[in-house]
């Protein structure tokens, strides 16, 4: 029983699979060739071999500081990039949203987006930008989208200022469609009174479905399916909304989340993300019962297809 460290590392490095007998019958997508895909994990211990080298695009992450200001403290961003390097995360899609439901004016919005632009400039190979928008700013919000895209950003991020079923969000969706860029939304079907009181305008799957139903051509991403809230509810409520993607980020690491996403939505609607839970969110994709092809799609290829829709 007393395996040494070398043996332990070997076990962890060996190919792995979750246990199929415990999983929903449809958890592995049928489109993959069983002969090519199924048997990646014959021994079944630990993490898949070469997991650090697997390409990974993290579609939901953040920079936290005012990086565009003189004398800015870059330490958290440096730690973020260092963690991404160690975990083999090739691209970090970062935004800096204004939280707490604050109806921030456009100058404040520009300020946080300038932080992201500064991070993109310092780490052009690692950090991609998502432009935070406060929909209540009207035409100025749309101008801000254009400004961010001119600076090289690749998507739009909404927080909890308005539910996404609110018509005030519609022009933002239309501008995203015009540019062919994804719209990533903070989400949660929260069931505790404290969080409900703190985030009265948080959107859940029903709000995403309503927006997606109105704009089926929109690349709409439900943010952090494991970010706090009833994730089983969130996934089931997306069954009939085929144009909504989910990102896998969040501090909740509960078993079967990824498998349920794949079973109910299809693996091509699932996008890898961490939202600052770096090791946890890499680990749950590695642990989930996925074929190598499904894992690769979730880690990066599904998002790559979204990026290829951009017009600017």
């Amino acid at each position: 029983m007393n395996r040494n460290r070398r043996e332990t590392l070997k076990a962890i490095g060996a190919a792995a699979v979750a246990i199929s007998s415990e999983l929903p019958s449809a958890s592995v997508a049928a489109e993959d060739s069983p002969a090519m895909q199924k048997a990646s994990l014959p021994g079944g211990e630990g993490l898949p071999s070469g997991w650090r080298a697997m390409r990974k695009y993290d579609v939901h992450n953040h920079v936290m500081e005012a990086l565009h200001e003189p004398g800015a403290d870059w330490s958290q961003t440096e730690d973020l990039v260092e963690a991404a390097e160690k975990l083999g995360i090739d691209m970090l899609c970062c935004s800096r949203p204004i939280t707490g439901g604050k109806q921030a004016g456009n100058s404040e919005v520009r300020d946080v987006n300038n932080s992201v632009l500064a991070a993109m400039k310092r780490y052009p190979e690692r950090i991609a930008g998502f432009c935070f928008i406060q929909p209540g700013n009207g035409p100025a919000a749309l101008d801000e989208i254009d400004r961010c895209l001119e600076g090289g950003m690749i998507g739009v991020k909404l927080y909890n200022q308005f539910k996404y079923s609110d018509p005030i969000v519609f022009p933002v969706a239309e501008r995203c469609i015009a540019h062919g860029i994804p719209l990533l939304g903070h989400s949660g079907h929260v069931t505790d009174a404290r969080t409900q009181a703190a985030q009265p305008q948080i959107s859940d799957s029903h709000d995403f479905c309503m927006l997606s139903g109105r704009y089926p051509e929109l690349s709409l991403i439900l943010g952090h399916v494991n970010g706090g809230g009833d994730w089983e509810w969130a996934i089931k409520a997306l069954r009939d909304c085929p144009n909504v993607y989910v990102d896998t980020s969040g501090s909740v690491l509960e078993n079967n989340t990824i498998e349920m996403c794949v079973q109910e939505l299809g693996h091509e609607r699932v996008l890898f993300a961490t939202d600052l839970t770096m090791e946890g969110c890499v680990g749950k994709i590695l642990s989930a019962a996925l074929t190598p092809s499904q894992r690769e799609d979730i880690f990066w290829r599904n998002f790559q297809k979204i990026l290829e829709r951009r017009r600017t």
């Binding site: 460290r5 590392l9 962890i12 993490l47 690491l253 078993n255």
Partner: peptide, 25 residues
């Protein structure tokens, strides 16, 4: 935290601690 959570996240953390001296690991 099994069986609530996936085991993979903790295996990744353990792998991230490989830089420690072997005895500490």
């Amino acid at each position: 935290h099994m069986p609530f959570d996936y085991v993979g996240p903790s295996l990744v953390k353990l792998a991230d601690l490989e830089s420690l001296p072997e005895a500490d690991y």
